[in-house]
Design a protein around this nucleic acid. Sequence first.
RNA 1: GCGUCCUUAGCUCAGUGGUAGAGCGUUUGCAUGACACGCAAAAGGUCGGAGGUUCGAUCCCUCCAGGACGCACCA
Length: 950
Amino acid sequence: MSQELDPRYDHNAIEDSIYKKWEKSGFFNPDNLPFGKSKEQRAKSKAKKSKKQPAISSTPFAIIMPPPNANGSLHLGHAVFVTLQDLMIRYARMKGKKALWLPGADHAGFETQVVFNKKLEKEGKNWFTMDREALYRAIWEFTQENKKIMEGQLRKLGASCDWSREKFTLDPDIVKIVYNTFERLYKDGLVVRDEALVNWCPKHQTSLSDLEIKDEERAEPFYYFYYGPFTIGTSRPETKFGDKYVVMHPDDPRYKEYKDGEQLHLEWINGPITATILKDNAVDMDFGSGVMTITPWHDPVDFEMASRRGLDKEQVIDEYGKLLPIAGEFTGMKITEARLKIVEKLRSKGLLARIDENYKHVVRTCYKCNTTIEPQIKKQWFVRVNKEVGSGKWEANKSLAGMAIEAAKSGKIKFFPAHAKKIYLHWLLNIRDWNISRQIVWGIRIPAWFCATCSEPKVNITPHAKWFFVRHASTDWNEDVRSIGQADPPLSEQGRAEAKRMAENFKGNNVDLIITSDLKRARQTAEMIAEVTGAEIIVDRKLRERHLGITQGMPKTERNKLYGDLLYSYDGTPPGGESFKDVEERVWTSFKQYRALYRKKNVVIITHGGPIRMILKQIKQWDMTQMLANEAGASGVIQLDVADPCKTCKSDLFEQDPDVFDTWFSSGQWPFATLMTGKKKDLSTFYPTNVMETGHDILFFWVARMIMLGLYRMKEVPFHTVYLHGLVRDKDRQKMSKSKGNVIDPLGMASEYGTDAVRMALTVGNMPGQDSTISEDKIRGYRNFATKVWNIARFVLMHRNETESSKFKVQISKLRPALTATDKKFLKEAKRIKAEVGRHIEKFEFHLAAEKAYHYIWHTFADKIIEHYKPALKVLMPISPSPEPTASQASSPTPIKVSARALQKGIVAQHVLQSILEDSLTMLHPFMPFLTEAIHEKIASEELLIVKQW
RNA sequence: GCGUCCUUAGCUCAGUGGUAGAGCGUUUGCAUGACACGCAAAAGGUCGGAGGUUCGAUCCCUCCAGGACGCACCA
């Protein structure tokens, strides 16, 4: 079957079919590997094993793939990890190991929601204009699409991962494990709900962890103001409204006449105030004037001091970055606008001492949108990474961070590059509590509930039923902002669409019963929900909206002008209508009856804004102000879960925390979560995994978290080796970015030059922890190498003359007596190089391994060895008068006479070359899998190169 | 402020206690029965600076200079 090969390797014609062949073979799954058999099977075959067969072993070798974010397509960074991990896996597989590479995808919470938001913004929307369920569903679709594309791209890059074990971070079984970890941490006191200063992004309306903020150096004016007898310095005048403590260092001689606790009256932004003097070590005598006022709600240092000393904390800036009423005339202004006006006012009052215009300081910004972070005090869930766990627990007197430190110090986890260990330790030694709550929709919802009545948090409750409160969809009257009350307009066109969307949200919620107000707008909404859920409907006129008497039908503005006071007080009754009190009694009585009747049923109550608020007022024990402030039910759905009564207040209604986990909290559990939910015995076979290969940029985000959580749950490190690759830059060492237009798309390059060329280009020159460069020239260079290898094979196979070979029954071992010293030297050298390449791979020196193989194959094998044998091979080539010898002529007996000796020499040469070719293909396969497999196919079609013994 | 890394050929980077390496680029030859995506050659470097250890330093140590990056609550 000496087939003529084309003079060019056509990767496009070959790659897909080769990948399919691999996938079909099942060898990506370690359970199917021919040498990864069970002990019994091995024992059986051992008896008849010949010497030639390489030693077989079923030592496991596992790499968990860093799950790419399912919010875009693969870029060069992904191509790097695919290349490096795939080469390790392929090498391990060829070394006879039970090699598992477990693929997955990450929902990537905040990142994905931000990416999706950009899409929405293009359509003039944003994530705040969508209700929770609809947004979640839309992002779900989005990620599933991306995931599919990514899977195709991974295949294109030649990833030999086990698709049968693929996982997504939102798979229900994974989520279950994440919940379980959270509950355990909570029980151990390592997860707490705490009021603390968090990094708040005013644009995205969520808190962020310390890692999700970026420091940005900015030049901003630094102001000095007279504050009573003192001069205080600040870069943030807009926070100074609530400041009533003035602080200085106890040892500062300039202020030694003042005593801690002393009060003084002074003139400030909006009038006279009383301030208290504090002496505290937190103040730096050398900075500014050595005196400062504090804003505990919006500054970490101040917060720490205020908490330590029990001082008052007041919010000055709201969640959107606007000033609150405490700011008086500045209320509602944005920070930047207010700042200048406040300075102006202070100047006019003669309180401005001076301005330092050249002040440079570091401002913390959201790492996604660059918005200045506004620290806010919030109740959030924190992982207490420094809290020691008592003896008897998983590890006596060690914190999560402490365990992770120990694992690196003891050498249980090794780092490539070695210095990454220092960086890792430095970070862990300075780590602070980890905020894991995010106020976004896309992610794993935190499995914590709050008692609907007393707000007490509960973790690990099992709801027996769900009660939903739904406000009817819109009517024309709603759209016209008319006062409706018990008037009875039907749903508008838009309202019907809304109701339909709402109904979709109930799919999969197992709704048993719908109870609705009898007014048309509620009933029609109910019918549409019933259509989707198939639930029975109970119509109850007691759930009607408040009767608004003579104001019904008026435009709301007019109504409020005339009857506002009556309408918004508890027992104010508009002529001919009802008071809030009346509604509350009517609705609450009715609600209580239904609660008693349908304890364990999932119920949807469809009613109106007023009744919903009155029911919530009762459950949550609100006063009128709280009730009126609440927009509950104005849009969306309110869900209350029924569970065992709260121990504190006996209420059995709970609200689930709307927050979701920081995505790293779930991906931090990836190594054990994927194996726990995999095939039987996967966890015991493959955990701890061998290598974690990822980018150095997520050493803290991900690697450190995996180590902490892995140790916590498994009492064992998640992996033995951490290999961190660097960033790939362009040939001018520039970071690739869309705006610079220097982005190299790995898949585009792969289709132009072949995947193998891209992989080689990414391997050579890629040192751990060191940024590497890539350029189209470099890729082209390795495409040329692929052609070279192809032509080596073409040359060797061209001289494989079936007829002559079979005549001599040639096998290299049989030819041994005919081998010259040079032949033997060449054969030995190939084996030696192959071994060295392997050793480099084992030492994580992939760049050296790839270069060595490249260099040997091109400059030794092709340039020296082949040239050496050319004369001897002449006899195998038919000498033909025609300039283009055809395949049929090549395989026909030679027409001229040659001596038997020369013929044998030729055949020996051919076999030496083929043997070296096979070694070359083997050593090159982890780097250039498609090309080598394609050539191997021509030599030995019955066996796949991926499972050929190294 | 704390921490990490880098500085070797025109470019991008390997490397070693004993005479300096690769790829790309450059120059000069080659249509040579596998390959011009090729072959054969050549030019090109006081290994950032200063000191130290050593028989000997590009390599180990110290300092300095330049560059990149990470972490950090200075109002």
